[in-house]
Design a protein around this nucleic acid. Sequence first.
RNA 1: GGGGAGGUUCCCGAGCGGUCAAAGGGAACAGACUGUAAAUCUGUCGGCAACGCCUUCGGAGGUUCGAAUCCUCCCCUCCCCA
Length: 416
Amino acid sequence: MNVVEPMNVFDIFLERGFVEQTSDERAVREMLDDPVTCYIGFDPTSDSFHCGSLVPIMALAHMQRSGHRVIALVGGGTSMIGDPSGKTEARRMLTVEQIDANAGGLRKQLSHFLDFDGGRALMLNNAQWLRPLNYIEFLRDIGRHFSVNKMLSAETYRARLETGLSFIEFNYMLLQAYDYLHLYRSHGCTLQMGGNDQWGNILAGADLIRRVEGGKAEALTFPLLETATGAKMGKTELGAVWLDPERTSPYDYYQYWINTDDRDVERFLALFTFLPMGEVRRLGSLEGAAMREAKEVLAYEATRLLHGADEADGARDAARALFSGGSPGAGEAVPTGPLDASLLQGEGTPAFILFARAGLARSRGEARRLIEQGGAYINGRRIERFDEPVTGRDVEGGYILLRAGKKKYLRLGPVA
RNA sequence: GGGGAGGUUCCCGAGCGGUCAAAGGGAACAGACUGUAAAUCUGUCGGCAACGCCUUCGGAGGUUCGAAUCCUCCCCUCCCCA
């Protein structure tokens, strides 16, 4: 047992930048002095989370570490409808099978951050209670508590009124409110959290609980993160940064974090690692080139949390080797692609064709431009001519290391 | 149902018979500068072994020596009225 009085998780949230709005700050803090049950809803539109979901995931992890019970709710029922929040267009609908399959993938990823043993954390699917709902009963028991006037004034729906809002989507708020009510009744859940775009829906649920059960339930939302340059969190030129190592390798995941804008480093260390705030502030205050140390810590910790220490070590070692000279023997974590050995026979293959085939350029024309602009390297040596042949002589240690631009590396091989 | 506006290369957005692979901006990419950051500057930004050839301007036809630009039909979007 801790001798020191454990910190209220609400203060941890405040200190680390998790809080955008709360239904009642004092009530929420007081409530969290004792163990509570809370939930966050996740969208099962994919079988993997991406970086954008890390804030809610980390929030659940903090809750659990502070002794609270957490529920990750996948919207198996609601995503068959499509949430209009923050969208300009309706979401596409998914089949029951897709949703169930996706939920499995999400659970696996959550288990890196949460301990599901012995019911300490639960993963529930709202399809369980939404699918059997009876329309007449639902209208009578739940629908009567909602004012259309009030809903239309909600920011969520106002924007959609411009472009068109189907009746199905319009009901999303009721279903999500019903989720909260259901979890309040069945699990004593008294706190729902979510991204700030969910504010209206979460409050609707807390309201419903008060009206129907006379109960008290709270809401807490997280800020919607943008990087300092205004980009959406977790998006790169190459697409989303996924938590699934099959889609975003630990190496690329590490790279995403190490490329964090200086101005975001402290904020991200607080949100995406468990490092003590003293250390976070120290790293965040580093100046100039020393900032790289902070980014390395951020990248390493973020990668370790998700993929484990071994993968994080590999990603860090590969990055260090590559970015300090680019030797081909940079380790197993370097992105590697297969090489058709016949390409190296005889005259070999012109470099621009090799780069295009390797996927480092979208077309041969692009590969050609890349080389002509001086952005292409083989084993650390800049390629001079676009059609410079690449042959067996370029194999070093069984591999050929290609580099496009400053940061994109691809190792081809092994060559027998 | 009636009337109006429009659909252009990743996005916004010019072009309205040849000089259009299509202005300008954004995004993106490369180079320089750096710290795998930001900002700035320069270049690139449909495909092709490439001073040329090929395929693009919602779709299908047509007029013309020649069409993103004109005509016909169709599809879609938005606005106003009902």
